[in-house]
């Protein structure tokens, strides 16, 4: 469980907000963040990158943010990455009451060697690698283990088949498929069409082409007779 030792980080209120100020913060080794929720006004803050970065990479969901000697538990709501997905550039933190139920996304940890993978050409498809769960803020699991060892070819594992820890319920459709075993099918060589399509159909072009000649013909005939 993530809450056995709630990590603490020091937050500092940001006086100036905006792209350029956020950029300057990042250049100084700080990470811009925002705290919101519980019907209080949003508070732009910054955190030390060295403190928060490893927590975000370690699947942390809950942390305690101290601002002006006042600590408050916060849930990591959203993480923004740069365009290459290399660095985290911003964090959204939501104020949370430790006795309330929250909806969070947790990682699925697939274990076991599925029996279906012994067949040639079979491969395991992870339709989902995360799942939304609902539980107390103090009971958020780091990962949810999923045993795939009994999965055969053509079989799948759905949300309803998951064995969730006590007090945790899935916040998704029970029929949602999490993992399945398929057999790769050799690509069929499609027979070449009689007339190879080289251009796509233009929307609305056919109708106009059909209507125009019918209207133009009488005028042309009238002109010729003159």
């Amino acid at each position: 469980m993530a809450t056995q030792q709630m990590p603490k980080v020091q937050g500092h209120v940001r006086d100036r907000v905006g792209t350029r100020h956020a950029l300057r913060l990042r250049q100084q080794g700080r990470m811009p963040a925002v705290i919101y929720g519980h019907q209080e006004s949003p508070l732009p803050i910054w955190l030390e990158l060295s403190e928060i970065d490893h927590l975000l990479h370690a699947h942390t969901h809950l942390l305690e943010v101290a601002i002006d000697n006042k600590a408050q538990p916060c849930l990591i709501k959203d993480v923004q990455w740069d365009h290459l997905g290399s660095h985290i550039i911003h964090v959204d933190l939501a104020r949370v009451d430790l006795t309330e139920k929250v909806t969070v996304t947790v990682e699925l940890d697939f274990t076991g060697d599925p029996i279906g993978l012994k067949e040639s050409g079979a491969f395991l498809e992870h339709a989902r690698t995360q799942i939304k769960i609902r539980c107390l803020a103090t009971q958020i699991p780091d990962k949810i283990r999923v045993d795939l060892s009994n999965l055969g070819v053509g079989q799948f594992l759905a949300v309803k088949d998951l064995q969730l820890p006590q007090g945790v319920s899935a916040a998704e459709d029970p029929e949602t498929i999490l993992a399945a075993i398929h057999v790769a099918v050799a690509e069929e060589v499609a027979p070449a069409p009689a007339a190879a399509v080289t251009e796509p159909e233009v929307i609305g072009k056919k109708e106009a082409a059909e209507e125009e000649p019918a209207e133009e013909k009488p005028e042309k005939k009238a002109e010729k007779s003159k």
């Binding site: 990455w81 365009h83 290459l84 997905g85 251009e199 796509p200 159909e201 233009v202 929307i203």
Partner: peptide, 24 residues
């Protein structure tokens, strides 16, 4: 290639910016 299009030809356009979608 597309199956249906609204216009057969397009202007070249500008190339700038970074991918904000389809980047993971």
């Amino acid at each position: 290639m597309p199956k249906r299009v609204k216009f057969r030809k397009q202007q070249r356009g500008k190339m700038r910016g970074v991918a904000t979608r389809g980047n993971y």
